[in-house]
């Protein structure tokens, strides 16, 4: 399981690095224009560490990811994603994950980000992708949907959540300094969260 998780994070790193300029452009519109650069720096470092390391458990890979992002990103997304992955590392098992496990993982990630960033839904942040994704997983669990359908629904909910940030006014983070002028732009944090979820889901559906 540790190797699969390692592969998953290597793919995630590639996706973030490929989207470096896109994320930075989104951030330049409403923030300080470094979201892509910062995340790419963190994920590049992560790639080095993953490629040169061997791991016993999923938890170990999540923990390494968390600490690497915390130490190398340089912007708020470092402590935010770092705390999310660290929280996940504390609960994730090495057995096959079912929908209930995924709900727990998503809730832990959100709890970590909320503790660190003190944000709620609707503030034009990464939470606006993550909370709808988590809610979708819960709904699928409650309706006893199969895992593949649940993951497809989750991805759709994450995409819709990301797109909904366009119309939101930022009230947290650097974009909040722009007030109403933050409306009309997709949030870079919500976008990077979507890219991470998309990579996770697409690679686990195979």
């Amino acid at each position: 399981m540790a190797n699969k998780t390692k592969e998953l994070f290597l793919k995630t790193a590639d996706v973030i690095i490929e989207n470096k300029n896109y994320l930075t452009e989104l951030d330049a519109a409403i923030g300080d224009g470094d979201h892509g650069v910062n995340l790419a720096r963190g994920f590049k470092k992560l790639k080095d560490k993953l490629e040169n390391g061997s791991f016993e458990s999923r938890s170990e890979v999540f923990k390494l990811t968390a600490m690497t992002l915390i130490s190398n990103v340089g912007g708020a997304s470092g402590p935010l994603y770092g705390t999310a992955f660290l929280n996940i590392s504390k609960v994730i098992a090495d057995s096959r994950l079912d929908l209930e496990d995924l709900v727990e993982i998503s809730e832990e990630a959100i709890a970590g980000i909320q503790k660190r960033g003190r944000a709620e839904a609707g503030e034009k942040t990464m939470l606006d992708t993550l909370i709808p994704a988590s809610e979708s997983l819960k709904e699928s669990r409650d309706n006893n949907l199969d895992l593949d359908t649940a993951l497809k629904n989750c991805l759709q909910a994450a995409a819709a959540g990301m797109e909904n940030t366009i119309e939101m006014q930022a009230t947290k983070g650097r974009a909040s300094y722009l007030g109403e002028r933050s409306i009309g732009h997709q949030d870079p944090g919500a976008t990077s969260s979507y890219l991470i979820i998309e990579t996770f889901i697409k690679n686990s559906l195979k």
């Binding site: 915390i70 340089g74 912007g75 708020a76 470092g78 402590p79 935010l80 770092g82 705390t83 660190r116 960033g117 983070g173 650097r174």
Partner: peptide
Amino acid sequence: GSAVMSFNM
């Protein structure tokens, strides 16, 4: 933001 967030962490 991140100065405060990193410190708190």
